[in-house]
Design a protein around this nucleic acid. Structure first.
Length: 273
DNA sequence: TGCCAGGATGATG
DNA sequence: CATCATCATGGC
């Protein structure tokens, strides 16, 4: 992945290689990106608004600067990982080869731990369009206004301040009390998110399921999307079907160490057919 | 109307 | 250890 930086107007572009905006931003791993035009998307992460545009052979980052690109967006879009090689690896398996042929271009997003945790608490027994709606209302209600139509993801403190009753307008249903419980345990340090970066998958899972509403699946999603643990393996209804139909003996060898990324390809491939 | 959606929980067999 | 009702909401 080569990076071309232009000195003018804080526009940065990267060579498009296994990087498709629609696939990456709308494959069920993040919920705060929306299309704003032909091959153009806008969203907020780490309290930074960003617009992205996709051309024939490159992805253009609009509204950022060199520092944020290096510190925020490079890790966020997993730009250091060679997805060409990864896709070759996956092609060793017949089913994954089909998924890669249709979904090559998905990159695994490294989101904020707290936002990823909350997002997947909200995802419980829910569908993607409504998850997006609830998170959007949550950010508008309690998130810092960043100008324009952009809001940051609210801090645990703001959510505690609102309480379950205060969250009523976001219409999260039974999940509201889980969001507040997560906020309390994170704010008090009972659950230390930063320490999870240095934990094994099992240790991280045990830490996260202290929170009400966080079970095996939500914990694995948080580890995968919020902590960069690409071997975490969330199993939802779709992946459950894939595993019982395609891999009754377990995942193939070529997914070792990056099971979460393989899962993302399989999940999206299966869900969109 | 009934069913489904990136589930967790507590009770029951 | 496997199964089940319940939790609330919007889209179809």
């Amino acid at each position: 992945m080569k990076t071309e930086k232009s000195n003018k107007k804080s526009i940065i572009s990267v060579k498009k290689s296994c990087f498709d905006l629609a696939l990456t931003l709308d494959c069920g791993q993040a919920f705060r990106w929306a299309p704003t035009g032909e091959n153009e998307w806008h969203g907020v992460a780490y309290s930074r608004p960003l617009t992205l545009r996709q051309t024939e052979d490159e992805i253009i980052f609009i509204g950022t600067n060199d520092e944020d690109f290096e510190n925020i967006w490079k890790p966020y879009f997993d730009l250091e990982r060679d997805y060409e090689i990864l896709c070759r690896r996956f092609e060793a398996d017949g089913n994954l080869k089909k998924a890669v042929s249709e979904c090559c271009g998905i990159r695994l997003l490294r989101q904020e731990p707290w936002e990823a945790l909350c997002s997947f608490i909200i995802s419980a027994n829910n569908n993607i369009p409504r998850i997006k709606g609830i998170i959007d209302r949550l950010c508008r209600l309690l998130g810092e206004h960043l100008g324009g139509d952009d809001y940051a993801f609210p801090s645990p403190e703001k959510i505690i301040e609102a309480g379950v009753e205060g969250l009523a307008p976001i219409r999260a249903g039974f999940r509201a009390k889980y969001i507040v419980d997560a906020a309390c345990k994170v704010a008090s340090g009972e659950v230390d998110l930063n320490s999870i970066f240095n934990m094994t998958l099992d240790e991280g899972r045990d830490e996260l399921i202290k929170i009400k509403g966080v079970g095996e699946k939500v914990a694995q999603c948080a580890l995968l999307y919020g902590f960069g643990k690409v071997d975490a393996f969330p199993v939802d209804v779709w992946v459950k079907r894939i595993m019982s139909e395609l891999y009754p003996e377990g995942l193939p060898e070529c997914t070792n160490g990056v099971r979460g990324i393989a899962q993302q390809y399989l999940f999206h491939w299966r869900r969109t057919r």
